[in-house]
């Protein structure tokens, strides 16, 4: 067995460099993969929350198909249930001209200890108290512990 100082040192350096690069790439890929997975889950949760609100807490008492009515009590209850499961939610209903019609926050005072997860907006036909219908936008933002 003979030792070729120049060649073996170069090979070792190349191997170490390659391994380090590979390791850095794997760690970076893994982190971005986890981040993306988390983003997908959060967006999915926000979308599920928005759909559940439209089909449940925002459904008018007479269940008129396709219409929504604001019921602060039901929205508060829904947000409380969500918060008890570690999810803070902010529900906004805005007109198309960006006028804020309703806002409901739960868990937002503790915003600092949460992190902003995701937000989703969906169109909504809102039934007024006087019976007229307005096209609005439901915006759901969620935070997770």
């Amino acid at each position: 067995m003979t030792l070729h100082v120049g060649e073996d040192l170069l090979s070792t350096l190349a191997a170490v460099l390659l391994l380090s690069l590979l390791l850095a790439a794997v760690v970076d890929y893994h982190q971005s993969y986890l981040k993306r997975q988390q983003d997908f889950e959060d967006f999915n949760l926000a979308l599920n929350t928005a759909e559940t609100l439209i089909n449940g807490a925002l459904a008018p008492p007479d269940k008129s198909p396709g219409l929504a009515a604001i019921s602060p009590e039901r929205l508060e209850n829904f947000s409380r249930i969500l918060f008890s499961r570690g999810v803070g939610a902010k529900v906004e209903i805005r007109t198309l001209s960006d006028e804020l019609l309703y806002v409901q926050k739960q868990g937002v005072p503790w915003e600092d200890s949460f992190y902003l997860s995701s937000s989703v907006s969906l169109p909504l036909a809102l039934l007024d108290e006087n019976g007229s219908v307005r096209l609005c936008e439901l915006i759901v933002k969620i935070w997770r512990k």
Binding site: I54, P65, G66, L67, L122, P123, L124, A125, S132, V133, R134, L135
Partner: peptide, 10 residues
């Protein structure tokens, strides 16, 4: 939601 909302809005 767009379809349902649109069709119900005057």
């Amino acid at each position: 939601n767009t379809l349902v909302a649109l069709l119900n809005t005057p």
